[in-house]
Design a protein around this nucleic acid. Sequence first.
DNA 1: AATTAGCACTCGACCCCTTAGAGTGCTAAC
DNA 2: GTTAGCACTCTAAGGGGTCGAGTGCTAATT
Lengths: 333, 333
Amino acid sequence: MLDERKRLILNAVVQDYICSAEPVGSRTLVKRHRIGLSPATIRNEMADLEEMGFLEQPHTSAGRIPSHLGYRFYVNSLMGDFQFDPAELHALEQKLSDLESQPANFTRQLAKLLSSVTSYISLIAEPCDTAQEVRHIDIIPLTAGVASLIVVLSDGAVNHTTISVPSGLSSRQIKSLTAFINRRLQGIRLRDINPAMLNELRDEFSGNMKLIDDIMSFVQHMLLARDDQLIVDGAKNLLSQPEFKDINKFQDLLAALEQNDVILKLMQVNDSPDDLDIRIGAEIGLESFYDCSLVVATFTHRERKVFLGILGPARMHYAKTIGFLRRLRDYFD
Amino acid sequence: MLDERKRLILNAVVQDYICSAEPVGSRTLVKRHRIGLSPATIRNEMADLEEMGFLEQPHTSAGRIPSHLGYRFYVNSLMGDFQFDPAELHALEQKLSDLESQPANFTRQLAKLLSSVTSYISLIAEPCDTAQEVRHIDIIPLTAGVASLIVVLSDGAVNHTTISVPSGLSSRQIKSLTAFINRRLQGIRLRDINPAMLNELRDEFSGNMKLIDDIMSFVQHMLLARDDQLIVDGAKNLLSQPEFKDINKFQDLLAALEQNDVILKLMQVNDSPDDLDIRIGAEIGLESFYDCSLVVATFTHRERKVFLGILGPARMHYAKTIGFLRRLRDYFD
DNA sequence: AATTAGCACTCGACCCCTTAGAGTGCTAAC
DNA sequence: GTTAGCACTCTAAGGGGTCGAGTGCTAATT
């Protein structure tokens, strides 16, 4: 598709632009990459590459920048493996194992780590898997009239909330209710639970005992709520990227990131399930992200499916970001 | 301290500046507030107010802006109650009761609501109260070698994590272990739990059963981790405020907000426990927040102490923000 | 035929200067 | 005590001029 020389030049332009964020001119390129060619030749080649859609010119008298197609070609065909500094790599593994041994807030900490290492935005999605079964439901009385309602799913997800219980209930009655609910719901997949079923349960039990309507409505809410988790960290990193010196763009981005449901859907589209999903610009499918690229790794951690994404400018350091996510996946899988 | 006319003028300057974010000149003031005085007189008064430290001048030929002392005086002595639109108020109560009936992610949703209503940053801190007792500990087997560890405290806080269990353990053994741990720890205050005690427990039980070392170390981590929660939302709102058109300031702010421990401490300092804590500029005690004001309401929701804060520019709409937080507190308390 | 030197041209970035306008402080009159 | 009048100050905005990096084209070179 592209002859060797064009590949060389495209590669050089992409690399330079990724580092400098400035349009790359023919002279600069020759100087920095010791290509045995004169600027004039480079210019001709660049004009060709532009015609073919791999490069763009911000204005007539500026250098070239890669188009999204250019990045795409770079990622698919030019980019090599990133060589990590072994010391750095070791420090990273250290941090990861620290995270695993201190499990409180694991995901949030991981997001922080991701964003600080890449200096882009990190996204971690843990969608609620409705194929999971209810493993255990617990109602723990706290004080008069208040209790904790806890639902454990078979993948280890735990949903909980504080609920009001009628003050007339004894703890024995609560135990009996809990046992009843567990007997009837344990092993049932989340997606197979529906309001009708829960109502039936409620009616059946309230024959034995009034007062449980409130509790059942909480249980219902809890079980029917799809508790998809999305964690975002490091938005501030992008502020140092020159593409976001225009505040409005950044604000757009932040606004888009707050639409959790949209982002969650976005991340679960994975065209290459075995490897990373790399999407550049419009490929992401969200207008506010047209100047960005998104790399998503899908893997399973402790039985739960986790989507791990890095969102940066389209002028992202692909080799490093991708290499990093691959290593991370190897570590956890 | 200030005569009537000075109070009137200071009040007018603060109000105008809060709305316009532009230095207020004498002419503008006369026009907008129908004071029966000429600009020249106002100028004299303003010069006095500046000398007294209530007003400042960005440069010689600009209007005046309130100093932090000026805001302080405004908040303490001038500001009246904000009149909310009844319709708006009703919509708010509607949203709040929706939140309460759908308890999943309550705090996060509340933070979103706060920030969208005020268009400032909302902060919600739920510090771990170490005076709380352990109410219940549960270990729920998930798959071979994996289980969920759940700790419920007497205020309804639930900590959980997925842990590895030795694959040799039967579910009966796990039950027996759970019962043992509960027997020994139930009712003990978090602050009274220490590593020595847990080690003792471990030793005592492992006499009966080997293999539990891993589990105990998880329990230990879980119980000793102080799981203070801080939720921040609406940072993007401040980008539309002119004081943050300088990206660096905003970046500073974001960086400061990521230091959860610092912010948590900040919010728990409450000089006026019965009412809101209103801190202006340097009073907040964090350099990155010197151009900001912070209003914190402390209250108790379902037995848990919750700190609810609004962080905005020093040029914040105090009356509205404060009125809003007061109503919120009335609603929940 | 491919490459390159030379050259005229383009365009944004930067600096400097001017101007307009909002606002001030002071003085003298009311 | 208040105000009109006035000279003064300072910023924001706009208009050139210059600089420099970069281009495309043409003609010479290899």
